[in-house]
Design a protein around this nucleic acid. Structure first.
Lengths: 269, 269
DNA sequence: GACCGCCATTCGATATATGAAATAGCGTTC
DNA sequence: GAACGCTATTTCATATATCGAATGGCGGTC
């Protein structure tokens, strides 16, 4: 469900590039360490971290010590194993505190989720690379469709992806390159997908009928924080068969105006 | 260097020390930037950040660019103002996902919160410096006593502080030094406090009857993840008068065994 | 009980991140 | 419309963070 790139075999090449380019490489390394610790199920030792990221152990140690000092990482003094520390929660709280989208979206998500018995997400579109779930309303019944705040997904996947392709202004070439990297349960062809994107542009919302996950229908409606630059979306996720019975059109008719209202509220101020 | 200090009354001195000591100063700077952006209500410009933290603008720019590249910070391309980005949420989610304390504590908090109509927190004790709220159960009624996951408090404040003083093994001198820096609504004398700490050690839990916040009673019970090293606590917060009526003893009798059970679950693995 | 292997950690030379000053952009004022 | 004050940004010498090798420590094995 999450995007977990399994890139263990070889030391992180993306990190190498980031370090090369940046004038503060220690920060890229620190970020890589945090993400690695985040992905890992168990605390990790210095060597293991250094190996995975292709870092020199001594440098890695410096990074870890700095992160420990800043309370983003904790070290077990006995085993010398490192893991994420609660300090990261504090940052997240601050982000949530000053984020109008989450505040405004939450009641809307809850209302739609309850009415249609679907899981509804508010997502933040970071770029063409991926999006982040920033608000969730889990309907009581559907425990199968579980997602958490903070989850990352490839930007162009599923219904949201069609919205991003339709309303963000990205070059066709770039879109296709990205599209080729996606993994779907039942992948559409690029041509099919382009047609669906065009349709999305016309009708103002997107539907993914089982492409991303078989049997699961996803509806996404775009939200703008500033006119012209697509930044968020509302996403409803439900079992395809259930939605067919209980009215996909009605769900669309709830989601789209909600997204529009949110856009107005966000732009207005 | 010196005249910089004079011009800007409070360029973060703690940061200066951290940078001095660390072998990865960029990371300390990055953390300081993240925290500053977290605290700030509005996006900040480069100069403003550099001034507040006592950083050279060019260095600060490098830090910010690295943080933007890592998606912990976003920049508004028009105004060149920086703010926290949703990437910090992803780290927080990973922390929460692999944290057994929050998982185990949440249902317990909810049960106690509902039974006694109090706000109940699970806190993670980072050290003598502070603790972090990692789980919350907000009872329906008490909107006054609002706290969020990720909030930080001084470690020795209120009832939790008495637990930490009682069960963490810290030197008397250190405790007193820290104690002197605390701010209470109705501060106890150090001697009073020491007596209360002794009492806490004996009875296995602590009560703060309006010292921290006037009229608010706080009960805290210690939780150990590893024997000997106090790491967490359960904290119940309620209006003093209401608790008096509805049985503070009963609340204690619920909280303390719950904390003990949690300790066993966490230690047992 | 001494060896071995693996790990975290220290140490010193060197590539490089940093900081002061210079430059470039941008909105405001006169 | 030019000049000002403010901002972000680039430049480039130098203090310093980084790297690789050497050290120290711990647990397991024979």
């Amino acid at each position: 469900m999450t995007d977990q790139r399994q890139r263990h075999p070889r030391p992180d090449r993306a990190l190498a590039r980031a370090v090369e380019a940046s004038k503060a490489p220690a920060i890229s390394r620190a970020a890589a360490v945090l993400r690695l610790l985040g992905k890992s199920d168990a605390p990790l030792g210095l060597q293991s971290i250094a190996r995975d990221l292709g870092l020199v152990p001594s440098t890695c140690l410096h990074v870890l010590r700095a992160l420990v000092a800043e309370e983003f990482v904790s070290i077990d003094p006995d085993t010398k194993r490192y893991s994420l520390e609660a300090g990261v929660l504090t940052l997240a709280r601050h982000w949530l505190r000053r984020n109008r989208f989450t505040d405004l979206a939450q009641p809307v998500l809850d209302r739609i989720g309850q009415s249609f018995d679907v899981t509804v997400l508010g997502v933040h579109i970071v770029g063409l690379d991926h999006l982040i779930v920033v608000a969730v309303s889990q309907s009581g019944q559907n425990f199968q469709l579980s997602t958490q705040v903070g989850s990352r997904f490839p930007a162009l996947i599923s219904a949201t992806g069609r919205c991003i392709a339709a309303f963000g202004d990205h070059s066709e070439a770039e879109l296709e390159a990205r599209f080729r990297t996606l993994r779907w349960d039942e992948p559409p062809t690029f041509d099919d997908w382009r047609v669906q994107v065009s349709q999305t542009r016309v009708q103002g919302f997107a539907v993914d009928a089982g492409n991303y996950i078989s049997g699961v229908t996803v509806v996404a409606a775009p939200v703008w924080k500033t006119p012209g630059k697509l930044s968020h979306a509302l996403v409803a996720i439900g079992i395809g068969s259930a939605l067919k019975r209980r009215g996909l059109p009605a769900l669309q008719d709830a989601l789209v105006p909600a997204a529009r209202t949110l856009s107005n509220q966000l732009c207005g101020e």
